[in-house]
Structure formats: structure tokens, C-alpha cells
Design a protein around this nucleic acid. Structure first.
Lengths: 343, 343
DNA sequence: TCTGCTACATCATACGAATGACGAAGCCGG
DNA sequence: CCGGCTTCGTCATTCGTATGATGTAGCAGA
């Protein structure tokens, strides 16, 4: 009497129905399904239950499991602007790392509205997600996250000691300035990202520190800001370059470097003969534009997998908070966009 | 194995505790919190309960709510390779569209392993997510998704009639071929994406159809395949271009077009003077490389928001399945990489 | 005083799985 | 024939919320 089949209709199969169909109790089904049946259920029964469950298309209801066990394997990832290739990498790597530990990843985009922090806090309070990795936060955000800070891992926090993960910005900027001065450059421009993020501020500070240490000049006319919108960035770069005062240019992001390329081409400045350019991030674009871009690489995979690891550790580890942040070092990839300055 | 318990901050507040603190019953708290209190709870009590809840930091437990109500506002998004900028756009737009209807988005990356389909089916069966949008599926995938097909929305399915959303590939290819032939090109090459996806096959079929309709030649030596890995793609493009048989080249993706640019530059072929290039996707890169790339645009935002809309409709609408797919048309953005062919 | 309302609030149960506390056999040794 | 030990299962409760059913008090009308 094969009673089939329960099509994929909307009502879902419960452990009670499996129990009925298999002629056992709900407890037995639960024990078998959760793999805790050893020593409590005979092998024959286990097989029978498994077969019945399969036949009925049974899958334990996640909400019920979570409610009962308190175990929730979903984390959120709050990233600014997923469409930036760099964050795409981060997202991908984080998903992979999470999946390896049986976690799923919920996306929270932080780019367009201010409501995301409250939504995130709500998600965590209501236990829709167990915790969250937050990239590039700022003070306002961190204040709101305070009450749930043991469920949050900050990457590149405003306050470095709050970070779980931090990047070796000073080291990277030292490498950049060393590289450029090593090539004979002294008038180094700065195309900054016009976003109020800690990471950009810290890059600029590190730059100034390095330049001072080397007693090199910094002029405000050698510097400007731009968003990542291509046309706007190109205009900003153009107005900077057409003064023809600098021989090298650091850009806060590879996209800005690409804009600088466009600007340089438009006004007849050759890269690297007339201008050396250094970017930041090392996204694929860096090798696509011509000449290939010298840039500081952020190892997105390492950052993401380390974040996941730390967050999950923090979530069940409990009280080992006052750990120092993990520092990720950022290699400078030297390519064809930088060359010796000839006087 | 001692079970570590009781750390101060981690126990979460329940509606019973709020009820106690406020001197009312749990039911009352629930009614107030869910906004269904009108006519059942006096205003004074409502305010008092709300205040108490706020003071204790109460948030309803999501699992319990879902279990009780059966309402689950999380959907999954299965996309191949989030790090491709195009899918970054899709993801972002989908998250936004979902959020507007109070849904959250769970990411499923389909690029690196084959296990994702089973994981996805499990998520849906166990009601961890309510439904899923699946991009660029294939037959194998669709077979496995069959049992839960009313919770899935396919975008660009292998079998067009299964799709909820489809792209007007034939229209796009017609525009491409019209554009190139209008410029006097007859020997048109094809740099294909080496991935077994329906979308690429359909592009190629549409290409052949158009070329036949115009009685233009197609030669296998004018065509090759490549993955999106930059170096490999550049090599493939190089071997295609160094034959110097074609005057125009269609590329399955803007990244491949970028590789073609590199190849062309390396062997001294000028774009667009010696070779016109057309891409596909219109990612930001298309305007960054020089000359700016003529390319078929996929309106990622429209695709994503329409997908979300359709899926959510399908999830609660229930039985209006046999709807025809929504067709999204793909404009050709003509830029500087295509020019008249001079004999 | 009794019926009929309205306005508030509570009771009790269901959602579906997990799990500690209990059996019920079967078997052994004495 | 009885106590004790395994082996195999089941019972009953718990997780936290939502909600139909059920009061209770107060008041108006008759």
C-alpha cells in the first residue's frame, strides 16, 4: 500500500507525519534526523525512518529547530556598495568561508540609506541573524551598534582598537612613498576618495606622515577629492593634472586611478613617462587598463575569511573580547604605471 | 564537555518578561508589539507596554514568530560569481527591491561548487528562506529544482518558457549585427564565453540567425572561446586577431572585450580603425577602457527589481503560474569602439 | 433586576522539533 | 524467580509568539 506522494503543494511535511507513516513516534524521527540516534534507535528503524522521510520529502522546519535549540547559523554581512568589485570579492569570500562552517550569509547593503543600522540591530535582537560583520563603519554607526557589540565584528573601525580586523595602512603608504621616491619623484599628488570613511582618512594621515618623515613637500594644489562616479572623478583628476605640477599621483582607489588615466589621456599627459600613478585595491581593472596599474593590494579573500573566522569564534567563544585586532598587511603590486622621473 | 552557559548579556528578553515588568499578560504584550491592539488594548496600556519593552530592550523572537505565523520574509538569490561586476549590480538592486517590501536577501553563490542546488533546496524545504531567484541555471539545476518550482523564479532559464524573466537576446543581436553591417563590416568575428550557460548559447544562435538572414559569412576560424580569466582570454583573443581576417569582433562579455583590447594593442591592431569591437553587459569598465566600448546593456536594476516583484507575487499569489515570461529589452550603447570599415 | 452592549484584558492552545526522564522487553547470573 | 543491565523507544515538556475563545466590569435601556 504505497501511499504516494505529496506533491510540492504548500503544506509542508512535519516530523509527526513522518512518524505516522513510519509507525514510530515523533521523538524517534527527530532523533534519527538529527543524527543523535546511536544507542537509542536500532539500525533497522533508522533506515526505515530515513527512507520514509525521503519518500515524503520531509525536511525539519528551521524555525522550530532554532527556537528549540537556540542555534542559528546565519550571519549578516554589512558592506558598502556591493557593486564595487572589491566588495564583490569580499562578499564572495565571506560566503565561502561561512558556508564551510555551515553558515549562511545575509546581505545588508549600507550604501544608500541610513536605516540599515537600525535594521541590522533589529535583525540581531530578534535573532534573525546570529551576528554581523561590518565593513567601514563610522562613529555614528558604532554608537548604535554598541548595545550588541559582542555580536558584531568591525573591519576597519573608526577606532582601531574596536576592530576585529584591521589593515596595515601605514605600512602600505610607506611602501607607496618609498617606491615613488625611489624612482626620483618628489612632487606627489593625492587624488582622494570623497567619502567620510575611516580608511580614507587613515590613508591620508599615513601619507602625510611618510612625506614629512622624508621631508618632502605637500601642497594643497596637488590634492583633490572625488567620488567614484567616473565622469565626476575624471573632471576632478583633469583639474588636478592640468596644472602640471606633479610627477606622480596616488589615488585612493583603482577606479579613481582609471579616471586619472582618462584625464591624462585627454590632456596629453603620458603614463608613466610624464606621470606615475599608484592605485589602491588591486581589482581586476588594475590589469585591464593600459598601462597596467601599480597598486596596493587588499587581499579580499584573507580579510573576508579572517572576519568570518573571528566573528564565529567570538559568537560562541563568549568572553575573550579584549583581543587586539588582527592586522592584514597590504602588498604593493608594482606594474607599468610607475617609472623613474627624469628631470 | 562542559556546556558553557550564562554569560550576562546573552540571554534574550521574552514577551513574558515584558509582561511581568509591565504587569500585564503575555497576550497583551504580543498584541501591542504586533500592532493588532486597536480595540483590544487601551491606549494607556499600549503606551505603558511599549515603554516597558523599550526599556528592557525587547524584540520579538523571529523564529517563534515565523513558526507561529508561517510568514517568512527572507528570499535567497542564487547568482554565479558575485565578483563579476554585473552580478554585483544585480545583487544590489535585488536587495533594495526586497528591502522595500520588508524582505531580506540571503546570498547563494553558485560559482564554485556543485552543492549549491542541494543546499538551496534544503533551505527552501526547511523554510529557512521563502523562495529563491536563480540566475543562469542549466538543465541539471532545473531538474533538481523541479519539486520546489513554485518557490523559484528563474532568470534566463535553459527553457525559455520556464523563465519568469527573460532577456531579448535575439533583438540585441539583431541590433549588433545591424550596427556592424551598417558600418560596412562583413567579416565579423565572435569571441565567446567558455561557460555552459544558456545565455551564451542563445547569443550565438541569435548571431548565426542574423548573419544567415543577411547572407553574411561565418567562419570557424573567426571564432573562439575563452573564460573570463584575463590572461587566458587575452591569449585566445590574440590567436584570433593575429590571423587578421576579421574587421569586427563581437564579445560575449565586456571583460572579454577588454581582453581583446589588450590583444589588439599587443599585436598592433588599432581600435576602431582596424577593428571594431562590441561587448555585452555594459559594466562600468566599458567606459573606462579606451576607446569607450560599444556594448549591449543589460539593465541590471530592472532585471533585479522585476525578479523580486515576480517572485514575491508568485509566492503569495499562488496559482497564477502559467504566465509568460517578462521580456527585458537590451539597448545597444554605441560608443567609440566601432567605426566604419574602409576597404 | 435582567438583558445586551462595549471596552479591556486574559486563557489556553498551536506552531514543529529537540531532549531529559521514563518505560518495556530481553537476557544473564544467582 | 528475582534483581540488575542492555537495548530500543516513547512521553511529556520546552522554546517564544500569535490568536480565537472566553471572561469581567461597567453602563444603558427596559
Amino acid at each position: 500500500m504505497a501511499k504516494s506522494v505529496v506533491n510540492a503543494g504548500s503544506r509542508s511535511v512535519t516530523s509527526f507525519e513522518v512518524a505516522d507513516a513510519a509507525g514510530v513516534s515523533q521523538s524517534t524521527v527527530s532523533l534519527v534526523m538529527s543524527g543523535k540516534a546511536e544507542g537509542r534507535v536500532s539500525n533497522a528503524t533508522q533506515l526505515h525512518v530515513q527512507e520514509t522521510a525521503r519518500r515524503l520529502g520531509y525536511a525539519p522546519n528551521a524555525s522550530a529547530q532554532i527556537l528549540r535549540t537556540g542555534v542559528l547559523k546565519v550571519i549578516a554581512l554589512a558592506v558598502p556598495n556591493v557593486q564595487q568589485p572589491f566588495f564583490g570579492h569580499v562578499l564572495l569570500a565571506a560566503e565561502l568561508a561561512a558556508r564551510e562552517r555551515d553558515y549562511s550569509v545575509l546581505l545588508v547593503d549600507t550604501s544608500d540609506d541610513a536605516g540599515w543600522v537600525d535594521r541590522l540591530v533589529g535583525m540581531i535582537r530578534s535573532r534573525l541573524v546570529a551576528g554581523c560583520i561590518v565593513y567601514a563603519s563610522d562613529d555614528t554607526v558604532e554608537r548604535k551598534l554598541r548595545p550588541i557589540r559582542d555580536k558584531i565584528l568591525l573591519v576597519e573601525s573608526e577606532n582601531p582598537d574596536q576592530s576585529g580586523i584591521d589593515l596595515d595602512i601605514p605600512g602600505a603608504m610607506r611602501a607607496v612613498v618609498d617606491h615613488l621616491t625611489g624612482l626620483g619623484h618628489t612632487r606627489i599628488g593625492y587624488l582622494a576618495a570623497d567619502y567620510p570613511k575611516a580608511t580614507f582618512r587613515r590613508r591620508y594621515e599615513a601619507f602625510r606622515t611618510e612625506m614629512s618623515a622624508k621631508r618632502l613637500p605637500i601642497a594643497s594644489s596637488w590634492q583633490t577629492k572625488a567620488t567614484f562616479e567616473l565622469e565626476a572623478a575624471t573632471r576632478a583628476a583633469t583639474s588636478l593634472l592640468e596644472r602640471r605640477e606633479i610627477t606622480a599621483l596616488f589615488c585612493d582607489d583603482d577606479l579613481l586611478a582609471a579616471a586619472a588615466y582618462r584625464a591624462a589621456r585627454a590632456i596629453g599627459i603620458r603614463i608613466p613617462e610624464d606621470l606615475s600613478v599608484v592605485g589602491f585595491n588591486d581589482i581586476e581593472l588594475a590589469r585591464i587598463i593600459h598601462p597596467e596599474l601599480t597598486t596596493v593590494a587588499i587581499p579580499a579573500d584573507d580579510v573576508a575569511s579572517a572576519s568570518v573566522e573571528l566573528l564565529l569564534g567570538q559568537l560562541d567563544g563568549g568572553r575573550d573580547r579584549k583581543r587586539k585586532p588582527t592586522i592584514i598587511s597590504l602588498p604593493l603590486h608594482v606594474r607599468a604605471s610607475t617609472a623613474r622621473h627624469v628631470t
